[in-house]
Design a protein around this nucleic acid. Structure first.
Lengths: 186, 186
DNA sequence: TACAATTTTCAGAAATTTCTGAAAGCTCAA
DNA sequence: TTGAGCTTTCAGAAATTTCTGAAAATTGTA
């Protein structure tokens, strides 16, 4: 498996960005390669194309499976495992978004819930708790919003994302209609 | 500077999460401490509370300044630099969000724009480019949406995030009214 | 200008993460 | 049940990131 120079560039870049997106370099590269390559690839092909060891490929695939970003396929008469990117680009983005929500918000929400159960022992602790409560409120709202977004259908999501500054106008509109229509929200 | 056990827990947790949020452990801890501590702190105080070296504090503050997450203060008759978290919790969240948008999306958008300028040399490259085009379209939309969100006022943002499933209903409503009202969008 | 207080820098040390490759573990066909 | 073909595991090596602390730079004052 030899990659064209554009594929090479794409794959290497995804490797670089990997750590910012929540996975490591080789996992990023593997995802990139499976994303642009429509045919399923097996572990040896991935390793050869990316010049990484067999063990590393195995670990990377395990990680991608944990993220639910790859799909396993089989070819008749071939005992090797073949992989493709799971679903459309949109599906993948939704999956990454949802997974990151879980990893970046949930542990903190759960810690804060715990800390906020304790009663403040003095003025200093009281102020600290107030501050933590603010952080908690914000992160919880963010978490719910992220969940809402990832549950929207692709059509709704597209409409919403294309609204640009119209979004602000729509919110005003909704404010005016509030109580009159369907009791949306809160 | 001795931290209460709840502050300690909060600070240590932010340290752990730091890497998922785009900074390293000590930067995460410093941000956490400055967030719950209302009084400005100087570098020595930060270092003592977090048990890290003076040099590390300096580098961490530099990083937090690059993120525009801290504010510099001075006390009359004291030559030391004092720091607080910059703005409200909401301000900070907005700043982190915006900064992450830049770091996680912009470099990829710019690479893809570049790669998509080239003409495909064969069928294989053509398919690759189609796929890259899909990725590009999605990331660009995401980028614009993120920009729109971070420009919304706090009131609009709050309204939007509290809508929950009402968001879907609002989008339908808007669809029905389209063309009639203010020509919002696109 | 001299100097004391403070911050920044950065080479090397320490810690952490990622990667390799050999060995162990599966699975299926004969 | 055997063994060929494949995948997974994981100890140690390599690479990368983070941290320390001493030295250099900066800043304000006299």
């Amino acid at each position: 498996m030899k990659l064209s120079s554009q594929s090479q560039a794409f794959v290497l870049h995804f490797g670089e960005m990997g750590s910012r997106w929540g996975f490591n370099r080789t996992v990023g590269q593997m995802l990139a390669l499976l994303t642009i390559h429509s045919e399923p690839l097996n572990a040896d092909q991935l390793g050869e194309a990316l010049k990484i060891s067999r063990g590393n490929v195995s670990m990377g695939l395990k990680e991608l499976q944990a993220w639910r970003l790859v799909e396993l396929h089989h070819r008749p008469g071939d005992r090797k495992d073949y992989f493709t990117a799971a679903g459309s680009i949109w599906d993948m983005a939704r999956t990454v978004f949802e997974e990151r929500r879980k990893r970046e918000l949930d542990p903190t929400l759960s810690l804060l819930r715990q800390l906020l159960l304790n009663d403040a022992q003095d003025e200093e602790e009281k102020r600290t708790q107030e501050r933590m409560q603010e952080v908690y409120a914000l992160l919880e709202l963010l978490d719910e919003f992220a969940t809402t977004l990832s549950r929207l259908g692709e059509d709704d999501l597209l409409r919403l994302m294309k609204m640009g500054s119209g979004l602000s106008r729509l919110l005003d509109l909704r404010e005016k209609l509030k109580g009159g229509t369907s009791g949306a929200g809160d």
